[in-house]
């Protein structure tokens, strides 16, 4: 049984200018011990879909799904109270800006022990012991001293470690890391990624890494899900994805990486991600796609087979060439 199973998840936000669909029919399956990434540019709905799973979206959001289950529990009809028994314990999340996601009014120790108090029956001394243990686990030197520090007394890297310690407090089965290293320097980023993958290996928890950095993806995870404008467009093992992307968007994104450039001028993707008012008919990527034809601009594509990376495309690519053309004409 998958640890997290989501079918056809959609999130609509009601704004003053009408309803806006941020996530559009996304499927996510996470097995226990999985190490996967959700990749996409801004506006691809990668963070929103995970916030929907955590139940952290504001009231303006409407979440619909055919199935949304974690560890056998249906998350859809759950009351906030029931949900709080799961999030923070079996499923936890770390965010992009460690500086702004810690509460500046309380010490780091208090914030780590808070979730222990909520979810475990450890006594005061036991919580203190566990908090020190966690701080050691995430590599914070002099843990006893740092427990009494306030967030502003820690550097960015240290704050992110404290956030990870907090998320790991109750040994979650699933950890969602939303751009955990984007705000950090590269040498610190390397330390944090190593810490996360090391912990994942040791504890056997599942890890979902949300990122836009293809380098981080290539070095860290096993499986990748690519999202574009709220839709899941492709899913593959990491090696296969980099070798033979099946969706034209993935292919174009990889080609735009400076380190893959063969000439001085980089290949580009024309245009921009569609916004609230300019969502195209048919395939959402068709206005920017170099392979698009009349059918792409009129008919919404359906998912291709698993061999073709579940690509949401009429003509999924195989080694850079579109397939299925003959069938269409």
């Amino acid at each position: 049984m998958p640890l997290l199973e989501i079918r056809n998840l959609s999130v609509d936000f009601s704004t003053t200018s009408g309803s806006f669909r941020a996530v559009d029919g996304v499927d996510i399956t996470v097995e226990p011990g999985d190490l996967m990434a959700i990749v996409g540019e801004s506006g691809s709905g990668k963070s929103v879909s995970m916030l929907a799973v955590m139940g952290l979206l504001p009231w303006t959001a409407t979440v619909t799904a055919d199935r949304m289950a974690f560890n056998g529990h249906d998350l859809r009809g759950m009351t906030p109270k029931q949900r709080r028994r799961i999030i923070g314990r079996d499923m936890s999340m770390i965010f992009q800006e460690p500086m702004s996601s810690l509460n500046p009014c309380f010490t780091v120790g208090f914030q780590i022990k808070e979730s222990l108090k909520k979810h475990t029956d450890l006594d005061r001394a036991g919580r203190q012991r566990r908090a020190i243990e966690l701080m050691q686990l995430v590599g914070i030197p002099a843990p006893e001293k740092r427990l009494t520090a306030f967030p502003h007394q820690l550097s960015g890297g240290m704050s992110q470690r404290a956030m990870i310690a907090m998320a790991l407090a109750c040994e979650p089965k699933l950890l969602i890391a939303d751009e955990p290293t984007t705000a950090l320097d590269v040498t610190i980023q390397a330390q944090i990624l190593e810490l996360l993958t090391g912990l994942q290996e040791r504890t056997g928890m599942a890890l979902i890494l949300i990122t836009h950095d293809m380098g981080v993806v290539a070095e860290t995870v096993n499986r990748v899900q690519v999202q574009y404008a709220g839709q899941k467009v492709e899913e593959q093992e990491v090696g296969a994805l980099f070798d033979d992307p099946h969706h034209p968007y993935t292919a174009a994104l990889l080609a735009a990486l400076p380190e893959r450039a063969t000439e001085r001028r980089l290949p580009t993707i024309p245009g921009v991600v569609p916004g609230q008012f300019d969502r195209p008919e048919g395939c959402l990527f068709s206005p920017r796609c170099r392979f698009a034809d009349a059918r792409c601009k009129a008919v919404e594509p359906v998912q291709a087979s698993r061999e073709m990376g579940l690509a949401l495309c009429h003509y999924p690519l195989s080694h850079g060439e579109p397939t299925n053309r003959e069938k269409a004409s």
Binding site: V186, A190, Q191, E194, G215, A218, E219, E259
Partner: peptide, 16 residues
């Protein structure tokens, strides 16, 4: 420390 966008790239990281 800079991640390379190639899953087959051999990681030879110097830990600072």
């Amino acid at each position: 420390a800079t991640p390379v966008a190639d899953p087959r790239h051999e990681k030879n990281r110097i830990k600072l």
